[in-house]
Design a protein around this nucleic acid. Structure first.
Lengths: 141, 141
DNA sequence: CTCCTAATTGCAACTAGTTGCAATTGAAAA
DNA sequence: TTTTCAATTGCAACTAGTTGCAATTAGGAG
């Protein structure tokens, strides 16, 4: 999806099209992967120096609420954001070497089933960062 | 486990027994459940008014690293801490009414198996807060 | 008991992110 | 085109948590 499409979709939900949101979305769409709020601010300010951080955080929260963007905390001190792709995926993160492996949402299907059946609970199992040890670091340790 | 036992165990790992750590551990052990850093500071200061927040956060991080305490982010704005119990457990949190249900670690066994078998990844599947909808709120919505 | 040294503390400054509020502005209606 | 009003922004102050550094201290060795 392109920024314009997201903005149209937001409009239909009663949100306004503002230059700030337009540029924030542009940067997120261009970046192709995970990006932090700080990096968004830096990139937008190259063209539009007056951007305020509140607007960025509020826009990001809006995009997360509407499901256009997924937040992930890799434990680096700042949350990263990524355009949502269907189906969901998760990230395995090696706590030794930092290696990241993407796994598809299906991994959690048995968990979802069990929580629904045994607890009548409908979980959101979206976009987790799962820490652990990768193959190489298991052998080393 | 009692504060004294934790302190002994820490000592064996090369950490010192300080009055700050002693009182922080006492408060965590007494509280019987989840407690925030801020609440720990408040409670310790009743007896020892000069406690600094850095010491609290550093002690909490130490206790998490050593596995004595589990951190959980319920999305309330501050992380909560809980004495570790074996076996691990997780928390289901209803995003509508806030209801919390404890589930044992076994729920994630199939995930662990799959990640080990298919990705050679050894995950830490400890003490998650899993958001979703409880039975009642599913019916309402 | 005294000395020594690394671990720990307090402090102040910092980072990431949130919030209340007044000023601005998008966009729909007149 | 002008009016209108809620949505949004910028700002400044705030919260949670982290960090670098100098001063203190636990606790083992002599």
């Amino acid at each position: 999806m392109q920024p314009t499409e997201f903005l149209k979709d937001l409009r239909q939900r009663g949100h306004r099209r503002t230059p700030q949101r337009e540029m924030i979305l542009q940067v997120i769409c261009e970046c192709d992967g995970h990006i932090t709020a700080d990096e968004i601010i830096t990139r937008v300010r190259k063209r539009y120096p007056h951007l305020n951080k509140s607007a960025v955080y509020r826009t990001l929260n809006l995009l997360v609420q509407t499901g256009f963007v997924n937040p992930t905390d890799f434990g680096s001190g700042s949350v990263t954001y990524e355009i949502h792709r269907d189906p969901h995926h998760h990230h395995l993160v090696c706590r030794e070497c930092g290696k990241m492996i993407e796994v598809d949402a299906g991994v959690f299907a048995p968990v979802e089933r069990k929580l629904r059946d045994e607890y009548a609970f409908a979980p959101d199992l979206h976009h987790f960062a799962i820490f652990g040890l990768c193959r190489k670091c298991q052998k080393k340790g």
